[in-house]
Simulated assay, not measured.
Amino acid sequence: MIDRLDRVVDDVSTVHSKLVLLIGEPGTGKSKLLRQLAERRAAPTLNVGAALGRELLTVPRARRHLHVAEIFRRLADDLVSQGILTVDNIELLFDRTLQLSPLDLLRRQAQSRRIIAVWPGGTRGNRLTYAETGHSEHQDYAIDGLVPFTVH
């Protein structure tokens, strides 16, 4: 599976949006596959929960939504290597108080670099989902503009 993912990462280097999402049920090895890719490519991994969470602690709660995108961009810029960044533990981005679209944030960053990220939700048909319908953090997106990579 790592060889197939490695080829996909090479293939997306020529398209406008260079976002690859690793999608699969919990326990299918998405994070493990991401670590293998990061090792193979000598690419850093941005642990969003840890790194962004640490940075946001210095920002007053009422102003975090104003700074989150810029902090994320700076963290990505600091870590990107050879045009590739692997991203894991993005659940913090779904926090409603941050007032952002996690997928749009990733898409914007993927215009200038290849981003391979673990998606913590699932799919329904041609849609990405996060959390169950009715949950306060529920999100639903079209898959357009990214490369879904299913991990079984």
Rank of each mutant, 00 (worst) to 15 (best):
G49S: 01
D144N: 06
S81I: 00
I2G: 03
K30M: 00
L106A: 05
L106I: 05
H65S: 12
G122N: 12
V59W: 13
A76Q: 10
T14S: 13
V68I: 10
G125C: 04
D3T: 13
L75A: 05
A50C: 02
A43N: 02
A62F: 12
E91R: 10
R41P: 01
A43H: 03
L19P: 05
R61L: 11
L85G: 06
H65R: 09
K30E: 01
E39Y: 15
R113M: 04
H135T: 04
L79C: 02
I84A: 06
T58S: 12
V87Y: 09
N126L: 11
G53V: 05
G125I: 04
L57G: 13
A50D: 08
A142T: 04
L146T: 11
I116M: 01
H152I: 06
R7E: 11
D78G: 07
N126D: 15
L34H: 09
L93T: 07
G27E: 00
E55V: 02
D10A: 08
R108K: 09
Q82F: 14
S13T: 06
E91C: 03
I84R: 10
L56Y: 08
E137M: 05
D77E: 10
R74D: 06
P26V: 06
E55A: 10
R64Y: 11
L57A: 07
S13W: 05
L57Y: 13
K32D: 12
L34T: 08
Y130N: 06
T58V: 02
L33F: 08
K32C: 13
L105K: 07
H138K: 01
Q99G: 06
G83F: 14
T28I: 02
L146P: 03
H16I: 09
G49D: 02
G125H: 08
H16L: 11
G122E: 10
V68P: 08
Q36G: 14
V87I: 13
D144I: 00
P102W: 09
D88V: 00
S13G: 02
H138A: 07
S13D: 03
P26N: 03
Y130S: 02
N47P: 00
R107Q: 10
H152G: 10
A42R: 13
T129I: 13
R4P: 00
E137K: 07
K30D: 00
D140N: 09
R114Y: 03
L19H: 09
S17K: 08
D78N: 07
R108M: 07
R108H: 09
S81N: 03
F72T: 12
R41F: 07
